[in-house]
Design a protein around this nucleic acid. Structure first.
Lengths: 142, 142
DNA sequence: TAGCTAGTTGCAAATGCTTCTCATTTGCAT
DNA sequence: ATGCAAATGAGAAGCATTTGCAACTAGCTA
């Protein structure tokens, strides 16, 4: 896991450069986020972070997530009928497929769709700033 | 406006068939919705509905919207950092472009994107049930 | 047409997620 | 080491939305 250790140090560096202090609590949250393979929400992050540092409060989780989001280190997603979920913003841009039975999230990317979106915006006289594309699916039965 | 009058009677019929009573309050909300050219939120609908029937409460607006949504008569949208907005579900399926400066909503449709979405879901072993595609844009300057 | 009854209503209180307040603590530049 | 602005924990506050409850009413029934 020295891989993720480097990752974490890198993220801490980004924060310090952005004038954001790396506290014990933030280090814990950062570690949890960097190692997360899923898209946890604030209370799940809180639960996990407390295992590293029991003093982390839910307020701090929210405050840290906002700070990290502003630094571009974390991305926030608001999927349908659910609390906000988070992921580190290291992977290249992607959209999400949500399993409506389990809540599992799968990442995917389609350059064709990306391009079509920009074209549509342009046709309507707009510049595309960002988008949200979510596919709500059910596992194929057959 | 006898056009929209028919529309409203049609919607009322759908409700009655679904075992949902058409009360004074619901009739008012339905009329507002049928005539709306935009995508109002609950409190805006409340404001407008009160002009027809001053007794309509915000609770009833919410309860009615839920009922209408369940009957498939209304669609609910949760755009970024905003309260839920509603529209009648009569127009064929479409996605939305949101002007991030004014909050204005423009509807569009791309069969190519629709098709690509289904293909992506299939490739990942899923059946696409529904999706959400929103383009957050800024009006082109020049 | 009057009556019945389950569905609806308004109001206020409750929810649940997220943000804020404030007194106290702490990172980190000097 | 010191100082001080930034960060923290605990709990209160916000806000959109939902819910409990007692009073009403749509609309079927006789």
């Amino acid at each position: 896991m020295s891989q993720s250790k480097n990752r974490i140090e890198e993220l801490e560096g980004i924060l310090r450069e952005g004038g954001v202090r790396v506290t014990r609590q933030r280090a814990a949250i950062l570690k949890i986020l960097a190692e997360a393979e899923d898209h946890p929400d604030a209370s799940e992050l809180h639960r996990r972070a407390k295992e590293i540092d029991a003093t982390v409060s839910l307020s701090t989780v929210y405050r840290t997530l906002s700070a990290l989001e502003q630094q571009g280190v974390v991305q926030r997603h608001a999927f349908e009928n659910a609390t906000a979920r988070f992921e580190t913003a290291d992977a290249p841009h992607h959209d999400h497929l949500i399993d409506i039975e389990t809540g599992a999230v799968i990442e995917f990317r389609s350059d064709k769709i990306e391009q079509l979106q920009a074209e549509i915006a342009a046709e309507l006289g707009y510049d595309l700033v960002r988008h949200r594309l979510e596919l709500y699916c059910r596992k194929r039965k057959d």
